[in-house]
Structures are given as structure tokens and as C-alpha cells.
């Protein structure tokens, strides 16, 4: 029992050490000469453009469903007219960034984890290293930066689609003009709703790219480890997104809303 606890503790400390070492390596290589601009642009395309469809559809459905679910309750209180305000605030502040980031964790982190894990298993990363190339700069830094730049953009697109979904949802049973709907939506939004939620998506993007690259680079030898790397990249990234969100909400309450 005691032995098991000691072993577990040792493993956790080793894992923290590995994460720290990898973080240091990523930071150092971000500012090193010979930055891979072309690869960064390619990764931005792969992370951003290739994820746009699922993000737009998810965004639309989020707004649509939220409207349909909340409309009857608000109607019972005679507050049906507040549906656009409620949808806009809840999507922009919280639901949009978190749900879209979780979707991105599933799509992007699994892809990066599997790709880099497969390269590790087939010794392609070792081949880069022994040739004198910088595998961290080429593979990890570019992917992490692509996630940092693209995830916030994807969230913005999804937020816009959510408002559109909300408008469609409102007009299924009701009748509200587009101008009125969007006026109501935007009038309820403050800069303090939009800015903190945008800031946290940069952190979500970082965590998706960082965890996925870490898991890929630390895949053990064997094809099974590629699947494990992809799977654990998604699980860990999702966990960290939720944790960071909880922290961000607390910080926003304290510093932005002074509560």
C-alpha cells in the first residue's frame, strides 16, 4: 500500500518534470533563430480551415437549441423578448468558448497527438534530431502557435453562428425581425462580456496544442501508443480547458465584475 503510494507519487513528480521540461523547450525554441513561418501557416490552415465546418455547425446548433429550450420558460414569465439577450450573453461569455474549445480539443488535439505519436514511433522525430534539424521548433512550436491563433478565431465564428441559430430558433414559434433580434443581442453585451472570454480562448488554444504535442512527443514505442497518445491528448486537454475556465470565471468575477 505504502509502496504503491510512493510509486504513484514518484510517477506524478516525473510527469510534472516532463511537462516542465517540454514547456521550457517549447518556449526556448519559439524565440530561436530559423523560425518555421511556412510550417506555421500550413498548420494554421490545418487547424483553422479544416475545423471550420464542425465549429460553424456546432455554433449554430448551440444558439438554436438554447433558444428553443429557454423560450417556454421565459414565455411563462412574460419575458420572451429577453431571449436574444440571454442567448447572446450566455453564448459569448461562457458556452461558446468552452464548448467550441472542447470540440477543438476532440478534433485538433487527437489529430496532433496521433500524428506526432506516429512520427515518434516510426523514428521520424529521431531522424529529424540526428540530421541536426530542430524537431521541437518544426513540429511542436508551429502547432502550438497555430492553436493559439486559430482557436480564438474559431470561437468568434462559432459565436456569430450561435446568434444566427438563436435568431432562427426564435422565429420558429415567434416572429422577430433580424434587426430587432440582433439589436437586442448586441445591446445586452458589454466589452467586459466579450474581452475576458476572448482572452481565455488563447489559453484554451495553447493548452490544446501543448498537451497534444506533449503526448505525441512522449508516445512510447509501439502502434498502441499512438492511439493512447491521441486519446490522452483529448482527455487531458478537455480536463485542462474546464479547469482553466473555472479559474478564469473566478478571476473575471473578481477583477472585471468586482464581485
Amino acid at each position: 500500500m505504502k509502496q504503491g503510494i510512493i510509486l504513484r507519487g514518484k510517477k506524478i513528480l516525473e510527469s510534472i518534470g516532463d511537462y516542465t521540461e517540454f514547456f521550457k523547450s517549447v518556449i526556448t525554441n519559439t524565440f530561436r533563430r530559423g523560425f518555421e513561418w511556412n510550417e506555421l501557416i500550413r498548420q494554421c490552415y490545418l487547424v483553422g480551415v479544416r475545423s471550420i465546418n464542425i465549429v460553424l455547425v456546432t455554433g449554430f446548433v448551440l444558439g438554436f437549441v438554447l433558444t428553443l429550450q429557454s423560450q417556454p420558460t421565459l414565455k411563462a414569465f412574460g419575458a420572451e423578448g429577453f431571449v436574444p439577450n440571454m442567448v447572446a450573453v450566455s453564448i459569448i461569455r461562457e458556452i461558446g468558448p468552452v464548448i467550441i474549445s472542447l470540440i477543438c480539443a476532440g478534433k485538433i488535439a487527437s489529430g496532433i497527438g496521433a500524428e506526432i505519436g506516429s512520427m515518434k514511433v516510426t523514428e521520424q522525430i529521431a531522424a529529424m534530431d540526428v540530421s541536426g534539424a530542430n524537431s521541437i521548433q518544426y513540429l511542436a512550436v508551429t502547432r502550438i502557435l497555430a492553436c493559439i491563433f486559430m482557436v480564438p478565431l474559431l470561437v468568434l465564428f462559432a459565436d456569430a453562428m450561435s446568434l444566427l441559430g438563436g435568431y432562427v430558433g426564435t422565429n420558429i414559434s415567434g416572429n422577430m425581425t433580424a434587426v430587432l433580434y440582433f439589436n437586442k443581442s448586441f445591446s445586452s453585451l458589454l466589452f467586459s462580456d466579450f474581452f475576458p472570454s476572448l482572452i481565455k480562448t488563447f489559453f484554451f488554444g495553447f493548452i490544446i496544442g501543448f498537451v497534444a504535442c506533449f503526448k505525441g512527443f512522449h508516445a512510447n514505442r509501439g502502434t498502441e501508443s499512438v492511439g493512447i497518445a491521441a486519446n490522452s491528448a483529448v482527455v487531458s486537454a478537455s480536463f485542462w480547458i474546464i479547469l482553466i475556465d473555472a479559474l478564469a470565471v473566478q478571476l473575471t468575477s473578481i477583477f472585471v465584475y468586482n464581485q
Binding site: 516510426t122 523514428e123 521520424q124 531522424a127 540526428v130 540530421s131
Partner: peptide
């Protein structure tokens, strides 16, 4: 270094 499994960049 020539790797046992060649280690070509397969993409």
C-alpha cells in the same frame, strides 16, 4: 544515421 525502419517522413 540510417535507421532500421528507414524513418522516412511519410507525409
Amino acid at each position: 544515421f540510417l535507421f532500421q525502419q528507414s524513418a522516412l517522413y511519410d507525409s
